[in-house]
Design a protein around this nucleic acid. Structure first.
Lengths: 224, 224
DNA sequence: GTCTATAGCAGGATAGAC
DNA sequence: GTCTATCCTGCTATAGAC
């Protein structure tokens, strides 16, 4: 994909950027408390004191990972969803769901970014920190409302807000799960997360969210 | 902080049991590295050295939480699923899915146990440790196969193993999500996790897994 | 801005009294 | 089995040279 995913360890990037990048990777993979500042500065090939110089302390580095890297990525996914939707004439449920699933699973993020992104999100959901408020108010709530509205026109009359919310939560939960829980998913399916598999995942998600166990071909999409 | 003076924390239980219990709670809530041995022994109202005496070291205490508490609970859920299923005459998809959802969300566990159970599971899925192998081979795989078999008779002919696995993963992912991600779920729905809400959750899950967005009128589909 | 050196402290683990 | 006292490693954070 883009050049900046290729050589993050290189000195050509300023120390701040290298720190943020390596910190995100390590925090996502191991969690805040399992990562030491030493580990981050070693990975970023800079000095131990750099974290305190640039970010004040470890906690603030973590928050800046969300502010500077996580949020922009979330906005890119959101934008990708809107583009996917705009690219189709209709806004039928299959179209909306496919737009969401593709934005997350095949969207603008690189494979690694996708994993970090979802892992950080899951960690914040399991044990929220100060970053959660940011994520919830600026990303989750607007995004969820948008999906809800996109789905609403084709919803039955008697469906209330709670039901719409639960539906959106269910769709997102599946997508997030298939993104972050690679270990159990790979183990149970026997598949690695290559392009072909994520495509099958998207198709599965669209079909399942549309009609559940009563499968039909309505969610299928021809693959060129 | 943690000495909530509830009956289970009392001295009437042997030190080992108190340690396991408090360790599970703290590990589930905060994660392995965020919890210190001191914190656990304080919560368990015993001495610092007790962890090393009874379990050798911190890591082994963590593993024993899985062996002694997590696994038995998982078996109780599994058993509850089987009982739910046996209580019904049929084994139609709605019955099977309701049996799974109720086993997890309203099953034999207390509300707190359910939360700890799912949080520990999510943590193992996000970053597997030695405990993951135990969980995967002894719980997840057999349980998933059983659900798959229960659903299989009513599945279309052309459905292969991967599709069945993805369906079971989707069902479980939703259930797990609604169990562990209480913060975002409560925030978006505005509901607290009382009995009435979990009942609505179960109903939602059953309906959604059965027919997805096509809830009532099965004739309702694309509008394009 | 980047580095070295170090303060200051909390962590896991152990030895040995009782 | 339980406790106190202690070791020692590794952590975050800071001071100050360059």
């Amino acid at each position: 994909m883009r050049g900046d995913t290729m050589a993050p360890d290189q000195r050509e990037y300023p120390t701040q950027a290298r720190l943020l990048r390596q910190a995100e990777m390590l925090f996502a993979e191991k969690g805040y408390h399992a990562v030491s500042v030493r580990e981050i500065t070693n990975a970023a090939k800079c000095n131990l004191a750099a974290v305190n110089y640039h970010f004040g302390n470890k906690k603030n580095l973590y928050l800046n990972v969300f502010r500077s890297l996580w949020m922009p990525r979330a906005h890119r996914i959101h934008e990708c969803f809107r583009n996917n939707l705009a690219a189709c004439r209709d806004s039928s449920p299959p179209t909306v769901i496919r737009a969401v699933a593709e934005a997350f699973l095949q969207g603008p993020l690189s494979d690694e970014e996708r994993l970090w992104h979802s892992q950080l999100m899951i960690r914040e959901m399991t044990k929220p920190t100060e970053a959660f408020d940011l994520v919830a108010t600026e990303i989750i709530q607007p995004f969820f409302e948008e999906i809800g509205h996109a789905l609403h026109p084709s919803a039955p009359e008697d469906m209330d807000n709670e039901q719409v919310t639960l539906i959106v939560l269910s769709i997102i939960s599946m997508i997030i799960y298939f993104t972050f829980a690679r270990t159990p998913v790979s183990r149970l399916t026997g598949c690695t997360y290559d392009h072909a598999f994520t495509e099958r995942l998207v198709n599965h998600i669209v079909r399942f969210c549309l009609s559940g166990l009563n499968r039909d071909a309505s969610g299928r999409k021809d693959i060129s």
